[in-house]
């Protein structure tokens, strides 16, 4: 199958590394990002399998136009919603506008790209959407209100996609992937090398098993959803055990 991936935030960090790994696996990659120059640097690392598509994912009209451009290249089969911003603002310094600007990228960008990609994927009933997420919503850090809220909402968005699509389009596989703390511009200097995480993310994006829909992955491991006591008891009685899967690269 001819894979065509759209990777957002491809001008640096994890998005660039994901583009490199995907292209190395034979996937054509369209990279979205705000900076044409940064995208050109990514293109320089990859060559002709990468198409730079300058686009601010917070701008819904620009995203729509970008996907029309993507159509000229081919039918999108993979979407990696990676673009995100994490401005540090104390809540007392935040304005409603500054807060909304972060939400527009982290949640709005995911929504705009997903809706555009789905509009194409439903024609074949197949596709792969990986939402790059964090657990920032579980125990929010100080000075990260807009980030925690928008990334938490992005995880909810993944679940709503499952509710709307899983029975109708089991071949469109959607899940969350938490790459962990990365050594990128957005991350921490002692984090995981983005090149290492990108191996996992690319393998996950190329994995089409319908049972992946709705799952959450942290680094290279599946995070099993918590089970109620009765369910665990039933698992015991029936001898069923759930095993967390691993990504093999």
């Amino acid at each position: 199958m001819d894979e065509l991936a759209v990777v957002t935030g491809a001008g640096g960090g994890l998005g660039r590394a994901l583009s490199v790994v995907l292209a190395r696996q034979g996937v054509r990659v369209v990279g979205l990002g705000r900076s044409a120059g940064a995208l050109e640097e990514t293109a320089g690392l990859i060559g002709e399998r990468f198409v730079a598509m300058p686009c601010d994912v917070a701008d819904a009209a620009a995203v729509r136009a970008a996907f029309v451009e993507v159509d000229r290249i081919g039918a999108v089969t993979i979407l990696v919603n990676n673009a995100a911003v994490h401005p540090r603002h104390d809540i007392l310094d935040e304005t409603a506008e500054s807060f909304a600007a972060t939400v527009d990228v982290n949640l709005g960008g995911t929504v705009a790209c997903t809706v555009a990609a789905l509009g194409r994927m439903v024609a074949t009933g197949t596709g792969r959407i990986v939402n790059v997420g964090t657990f920032a919503d579980v125990a929010p850090l100080p000075a990260s209100a807009a980030y925690a809220v928008s990334k938490g909402a992005q995880r909810i968005f993944t679940r709503t996609l499952v509710a709307d699509l899983h029975d109708r389009f089991p071949g469109i596989v959607v899940n969350d992937w938490m790459p962990g703390m990365l050594d990128t511009g957005m991350g921490v200097s002692d984090g995981i090398e983005p090149e290492v995480a990108a191996e996992w993310g690319a393998a996950l994006a190329l994995w089409r098993d319908a049972s992946l829909t709705g799952t959450v992955w942290e680094r290279d491991r599946e995070v099993l959803s918590p089970r109620a006591v009765a369910e665990r008891l039933r698992d015991r009685l029936t001898g069923r055990r759930r095993v967390a899967r691993r990504i093999t690269t």
């Binding site: 439903v122 024609a123 074949t124 009933g125 197949t126 509710a163 029975d167 109708r168 389009f169 089991p170 071949g171």
Partner: peptide
Amino acid sequence: GWRREANGTEAA
């Protein structure tokens, strides 16, 4: 709708 839909009658 879409020809590739595969849902059953168990729905919301």
